Amino acid sequence: MAYKSPQDIAAYAVEAGVKKTSMPLKSMLLLGFLGGAYISAGYLLSVRVTASLPSEWGTFGSFLGAAVFPLGLILILIAGGELLTGNMMAVPMACLTGRVRWSRLVHNWFWITLSNFAGALFVAYFFGHLAELTTGGVFLEKVVATAGQKLDVHFWPALVSAIGCNWLVGLAVWLSYGADDIGGKIAAIWFPIMAFVAIGFQHVVANMFIIPVAIFEGYYSWGEYLGNFIPVFLGNAIGGAVLVAAVYWQSYQGDLQSVSEAGKRETKDIQG
């Protein structure tokens, strides 16, 4: 399998961040909707696979759920989609090298958050609730228990858990940038995503599915969800922007500086 060096991955991540912030709003919203829906589909698959497993299986059941969850990010990075937590790594890389203004980061994160939420709610309501895939029996028990576990975590533990989550998710996206074929990308995505799910870290977009689907079934409240959303959003941002983007930017700053200057010259040439 062909792959890029770490320095080349860093340069690729910068270009990915530039492209993400320069796409039209319509494309951003449509791809963001798909991103939220794909992550939710992966989570729904995990629920359906693990809910009826015998308790004697212990953590092996958690591993099976974690093993199928990566479907969401695989669909996003290969079929096409925009995911907030991936953008929390790629867009800061472009900003740190001077290729993108920080105001564009806020613009991108805002609209991708909203569109990811819309996609997650779509899957939660239509496929979880209306299609009755999460409305009864062991599946409802699994959804309610999982959502409750996430909501029971206080602010600071939730934030730190979310940092760990997006350290791994950011690395999954980073590693996928290093692969030049589909098989390599799938392998690069699968291991870090499997790890964060098996560990139990909190992911802001995954929570956009699992907590609302429990709310649609009459459990918990939107206020409780907001109390989870804030620390998990902040923690995911720190994990992606600091532990991945800032660390690699600082490590490969010399290599990225030449790439950034070349990119700026190319932009000026295009503009006139």
Results as ranks from 00 to 15, higher is better:
residue 156 W to V: 09
residue 93 M to T: 00
residue 82 E to H: 05
residue 64 L to K: 07
residue 74 I to T: 14
residue 99 R to F: 05
residue 43 Y to A: 15
residue 37 A to Y: 12
residue 141 E to D: 15
residue 155 F to M: 00
residue 128 G to D: 02
residue 112 I to T: 15
residue 82 E to A: 08
residue 45 L to H: 11
residue 77 L to V: 14
residue 148 G to T: 08
residue 74 I to C: 00
residue 135 T to N: 10
residue 42 G to H: 12
residue 81 G to R: 04
residue 164 G to Y: 07
residue 137 G to P: 09
residue 136 G to D: 13
residue 80 G to W: 01
residue 101 R to Q: 14
residue 145 A to G: 14
residue 130 L to F: 12
residue 37 A to N: 08
residue 72 G to D: 07
residue 106 V to Y: 12
residue 161 S to D: 09
residue 64 L to C: 14
residue 91 V to I: 07
residue 28 M to Q: 11
residue 91 V to R: 00
residue 98 G to I: 04
residue 79 A to P: 09
residue 133 L to V: 00
residue 80 G to Q: 02
residue 108 N to P: 10
residue 141 E to L: 00
residue 97 T to C: 07
residue 111 W to A: 01
residue 143 V to I: 03
residue 149 Q to H: 14
residue 155 F to A: 01
residue 160 V to G: 06
residue 49 V to H: 11
residue 56 E to N: 13
residue 69 F to V: 03
residue 75 L to T: 03
residue 148 G to L: 04
residue 118 A to R: 05
residue 149 Q to D: 12
residue 126 F to D: 02
residue 73 L to I: 11
residue 51 A to K: 13
residue 151 L to P: 09
residue 128 G to N: 00
residue 46 S to Y: 12
residue 58 G to L: 01
residue 33 F to H: 05
residue 54 P to G: 04
residue 87 N to W: 05
residue 40 S to C: 07
residue 137 G to R: 09
residue 146 T to N: 14
residue 88 M to H: 08
residue 124 A to N: 02
residue 152 D to Q: 14
residue 30 L to W: 11
residue 101 R to H: 14
residue 54 P to E: 04
residue 29 L to C: 07
residue 119 G to Y: 10
residue 46 S to V: 10
residue 43 Y to Q: 07
residue 58 G to S: 03
residue 162 A to L: 02
residue 48 R to K: 15
residue 97 T to P: 10
residue 147 A to Q: 04
residue 133 L to S: 04
residue 87 N to M: 02
residue 117 F to V: 03
residue 81 G to L: 00
residue 77 L to K: 02
residue 103 S to L: 13
residue 111 W to E: 05
residue 29 L to H: 03
residue 65 G to I: 10
residue 68 V to T: 14
residue 153 V to A: 03
residue 61 G to W: 01
residue 47 V to F: 13
residue 115 S to K: 00
residue 110 F to W: 12
residue 81 G to N: 09
residue 54 P to T: 07
residue 46 S to D: 13
residue 154 H to P: 10
residue 126 F to H: 04
residue 58 G to Y: 06
residue 104 R to W: 11
residue 146 T to P: 09
residue 61 G to S: 15
residue 106 V to I: 15
residue 31 L to Y: 09
residue 34 L to V: 01
